[in-house]
Every structure is written in structure tokens, then in C-alpha cells.
């Protein structure tokens, strides 16, 4: 099933042989497996296009306040004058004008474009933070379970099974108000930072299992290798074993799963908003926007269209990039 060490190395040898030349040839600095993967990624057009799109989205999110200054409209400003008597935006395509590029929200009359920019910022922040935390938890638990085995492995496996058995949406629905109450009491004004924090915490509790399983499997495949034994024979401790010897060899699948986890958290945030958990309306986020917009599917399709397309493009780019990354890091997996 898995790539045997000899094949993998032989493959790499062949590639480096055709590229920069074997050991006999001049040039002192070698190419690491990571550099080889980077070269492959650079040659992949899909990867470059989707990667560029992602960088663009990231920059938009980071520069949201700057964009607000240049655009001249804030995310909470309401333009009631531009709505008709039923609260629907005047004009074509949901009120698209030179001032309001993507039109206005029905009801409150807020600018869709700048809210999307801020929503992008919130959603990306939540997704990246959640992916980082879950990856960390998953790596540590998975590596410990895989490397040490025995009862620790059994316990961690069982906790994984337990986490998977808890219905995520229902528990999240129950947990969020509980946490809020614990920190704010009955009538406290919930800050948006707190809402974001709760979401990340909920994702962290439920999202680590797949990384843990992945890392555990990889570590089990590696731990009998002789280079691991060599370190052990030199007296290396657990930390050195896990973080110096094993982890550098499994960055590739971890990176891929990370790049596919980010869009998952973006959509999960939206799904939670959809059942009414998550951020308050004060904090612009993709989930909130989609959720609110669905009510206007018939009356104001443009309101559904803009957030829907943006979130689709973002998630699509992430998925494309994740796939390309997998190909580049593990040339054998597809193609």
C-alpha cells in the first residue's frame, strides 16, 4: 500500500539525477525533498492560479480597514434612504451602484461589498485559527498514540471514537449559549471577540480527530524504521523522536490535511450560523450573510448571489490548492 522507503528514495534519486545531478556532480547544497516538492508545485498551473487567488483573498481580509477607507463606506453604516417602502434596495441587481458595488442588504440597507470584505476577514481568521489549533492537538495526540502505542494508544483512540460519536451540530448548539452564559451572565453584551473565541473553541474540541488519525497511522508506519532506531540507540528522548525524527517526515500529509481543513471550517462556520449558533449580527461573517440572504432568494437574488459566489470561490480555491499540494508533495498519489 504505502510507499516503501526504498522506492521513495529511489524515486527521489531518479528525479535529482535528472535535475541537478547526482552526488558526483559539483554544487554543494543539496535539494531537500521539500524543495523538490516546491519545484513541482511551481510547475503546476492549477496550483499557481488557485494559490494566487488565495493570496488575493488573504490580502483582502488583512487589508479590510484600508479598503474601508478607500471605499468610503463602513460595514455597519445603514443606507435606509436607498431602500423602498418594503425595505428592498432600489435600483437594479439589489441596488448595485458606483457607491455600493455589490448592492445593499434588504432591511437594514448595509453595504454588501464592505461587509463581505470584513466577513472574509472574520471567516478566514476563524478557519485558520481553528485549523492551527486542531492540527496541533491532532499532531500531538496522534504522534503520542502512534509512537508509544499500548494503553495510551487505546485511550486516545477511544477518545477519538467518542468525539466522532457526539453529534457536532447539536452539541455546538447546546454548548455555545452555555459558554456565553458562564462568561457573561444573563444579560451581558457579548463582545464579538468572545463570539469568535467560542466558535474556535467548539471547532477545536471536535475538529482534531482526522489529523490525529492521520498522524497516528503515519507514525506507526515510520516508527519501526531504522533511522528512528538509530536515534533511540543514541539515547534520544521522546521529544527528539517525535519532533526531530518523525514529524519532518509527515509534514506533507499534515500540510495537505491542513489546507483542506481550512475550507471545512469556513463552511462549518456558515453551517452553524445557519442553525442559529455562532456570531451575532454585529460581526460580519460569511455564515451570517448567507443565512440572512436565503430568506430573500426570490425577492432579492443578488443578495444571495454575491456572498454565495464569494464563499464558493474561496472554498473552491482552497480545495483546488489542497489537491495540487497533495500532488506536489506525493507525486505518486495521482497523475
Amino acid at each position: 500500500m504505502s510507499l516503501s522507503p526504498v522506492e521513495g528514495v529511489a524515486l527521489a534519486e531518479i528525479e535529482s539525477g535528472t535535475g541537478s545531478g547526482g552526488p558526483g556532480v559539483k554544487g554543494v547544497v543539496g535539494r531537500s525533498p521539500g524543495q523538490l516538492a516546491w519545484l513541482r508545485l511551481r510547475r503546476d498551473r492549477t496550483a499557481m492560479v488557485s494559490g494566487a487567488l488565495l493570496v488575493f483573498f488573504l490580502l483582502l481580509g488583512l487589508a479590510a480597514p484600508l479598503i474601508e477607507m478607500a471605499y468610503g463606506v463602513g460595514p455597519r453604516e445603514q443606507f435606509q434612504k436607498l431602500l423602498d417602502g418594503f425595505g428592498m434596495p432600489l435600483g437594479y441587481a439589489g441596488g448595485v451602484t458606483g457607491d455600493h458595488w455589490f448592492g445593499l442588504e434588504p432591511g437594514l440597507g448595509r453595504d454588501i461589498f464592505i461587509r463581505l470584505i470584513y466577513g472574509l476577514r472574520t471567516s478566514l481568521f476563524i478557519a485558520f485559527a481553528a485549523a492551527l489549533i486542531t492540527a496541533t492537538i491532532g499532531i500531538v495526540l496522534g504522534a503520542l498514540a502512534g509512537y508509544l502505542g499500548g494503553w495510551l494508544d487505546a485511550v486516545i483512540n477511544w477518545i477519538t471514537d467518542l468525539t466522532l460519536a457526539m453529534p457536532f451540530l447539536i452539541i455546538a448548539l447546546a454548548l455555545t449559549p452555555t459558554l456565553t452564559l458562564r462568561f457573561y451572565g444573563e444579560r451581558g453584551q457579548v463582545s464579538s471577540a468572545f463570539g469568535v473565541g467560542v466558535l474556535i473553541a467548539v471547532f477545536a474540541i471536535f475538529g482534531w480527530t482526522s489529523t490525529a488519525r492521520l498522524v497516528r497511522g503515519q507514525v506507526i508506519a515510520l516508527r519501526e524504521r531504522e533511522f528512528v532506531e538509530a536515534a533511540k540507540a543514541s539515547g534520544a528522548g521522546l521529544g527528539h523522536m517525535l519532533f526531530r525524527q518523525l514529524l519532518p517526515n509527515i509534514w506533507a500529509p499534515i500540510l495537505v490535511s491542513f489546507s483542506l481543513a481550512v475550507p471545512q471550517f469556513i463552511t462549518s462556520e456558515a453551517a452553524l450560523s445557519f442553525i442559529g449558533v455562532g456570531l451575532s449580527d454585529e460581526t460580519p461573517s460569511f455564515g451570517r450573510m448567507i443565512y440572512r440572504s436565503l430568506d430573500f432568494l426570490q425577492t432579492d437574488p443578488a443578495y444571495v448571489f454575491f456572498p454565495g459566489i464569494t464563499i464558493f470561490a474561496l472554498v473552491f480555491a482552497f480545495n483546488l490548492f489542497g489537491d495540487a499540494l497533495r500532488d506536489a508533495l506525493d507525486p505518486k498519489s495521482s497523475r
Partner: peptide, 13 residues
């Protein structure tokens, strides 16, 4: 890839 990037409530709507 398209399917994997879409949301159920969106498709459903």
C-alpha cells in the same frame, strides 16, 4: 471539486 466546495443550504435553496 464543485460539489465539495458548495454548501447544502445554498444548493438546497
Amino acid at each position: 471539486l464543485t460539489g465539495a466546495s458548495l454548501q447544502l443550504y445554498f444548493v438546497g435553496a
